[in-house]
């Protein structure tokens, strides 16, 4: 077991995350603590906008660790994820040193100076505590998973010209996925798994209170209640936590005092981004459509 982050207990994780404005449920705090204690990567799945990425950011902020982020996309490859040689600079170096022998030039152009470190290598070489966030790993191609397996398994990288670079301080790794593609068993097996769903009503109320403290508390409660009603409907995109917060801010700006049909109707666009979702919600909530 290799501890990666200076947490002492589950409650400690909770309070430290709370101090940077991330209210974690018991499940989240427990899993973060375990990932840190066991030194295993943490794979987070869940619907968009429930705070998967925010969790990694909160951990790095709470422990004042550096955050290194690898945003995955279709076609991300080794030279974007791990490292790359700076070809242009190497060429300049070769043309600049006319008199030296080839051997000298060769050993020189494959030194650290010409190495472009990408997120994975940066996280491994960092001597300070680091949070490595591999965001939307399901968007990357299957081939990159092999690379991740190697790096996340041993926390070392072999560069043929330089030798093997071992992690000085094992980073705290967070992978997030929206499940657009099934991740390979091998990758899943190496990670602790956490599914973040929409928060329970009272946790969401607390989140709202901490993010929008000016909002009247009765109104906060009814906002959460209406959002939960919406989530129970068959919508194309259920409103996320961040949209709940946006909505609360909107209501504050509108100066609404209670949540009646008219107010909801006027501001529905903040939480529902598809027209047919809005129509359906209007129908099911029995709101009279505004003219």
């Amino acid at each position: 077991m290799t501890r990666t982050m200076p947490f002492t207990s589950v409650s400690d994780v909770k309070s430290q995350l709370e101090s940077v404005g991330y209210l974690a449920s018991d499940a989240i705090a427990t899993t973060v603590f375990l990932a840190s204690e066991l030194g295993k990567p943490l794979l987070i799945e869940g619907p968009a906008g429930v705070g998967k990425t925010a969790l990694a950011q909160a951990v790095s902020e709470a422990t004042s660790a550096a955050l290194v982020r690898l945003q995955c996309y279709e076609g991300v490859d080794e030279s974007r994820a791990l490292y790359e040689w700076n070809h242009a600079k190497q060429l300049l170096r070769i043309t600049a040193g006319r008199d030296e022998t080839w051997d000298d030039a060769r050993t020189d152009i494959f030194s650290e100076e010409f190495l472009l470190t990408r997120p994975l290598l940066t996280a491994i070489r960092n001597s300070e505590p680091t949070v490595l966030l591999i965001d939307e790993v399901d968007k990357a191609d299957v081939e990159i998973e092999g690379l991740l397996l190697e790096v996340l398994g041993d926390f070392q990288v072999t560069i043929p010209e330089l030798g093997t670079i071992r992690a000085l301080h094992r980073p705290f790794v967070v992978l997030t996925s929206n499940a657009t593609r099934e991740l390979s068993e091998a990758l899943r097996r190496r990670c602790l798994f956490l599914h973040i769903d929409f928060p329970e009503a009272d946790l969401e109320e607390r989140i709202l209170r901490s993010q929008v403290p000016e909002l009247d508390s009765a109104l906060t409660a009814s906002v959460v209640r209406v959002v939960n009603t919406l989530r129970a409907m068959p919508l194309r995109k259920a409103p996320s936590v961040s949209e709940t917060i946006d909505w609360a801010r909107t209501l504050l700006a509108l100066g609404a005092e209670t949540l009646d049909e008219k107010v909801v109707n006027e501001s529905l666009g903040v939480i529902l981004k598809h027209r047919d979702d809005q129509e359906r919600a209007t129908k099911l909530l029995d709101l009279t459509p505004s003219v």
Partner: peptide
């Protein structure tokens, strides 16, 4: 070993994190 057996709900979440592969 890390969590102990005191808090049942935390133990549940912890074991789920280690043993599950999907929601």
């Amino acid at each position: 070993e890390v969590l102990g057996l005191d808090d049942r709900e935390r133990l549940r979440e912890g074991l789920a994190a280690a043993l599950l592969r999907g929601a």
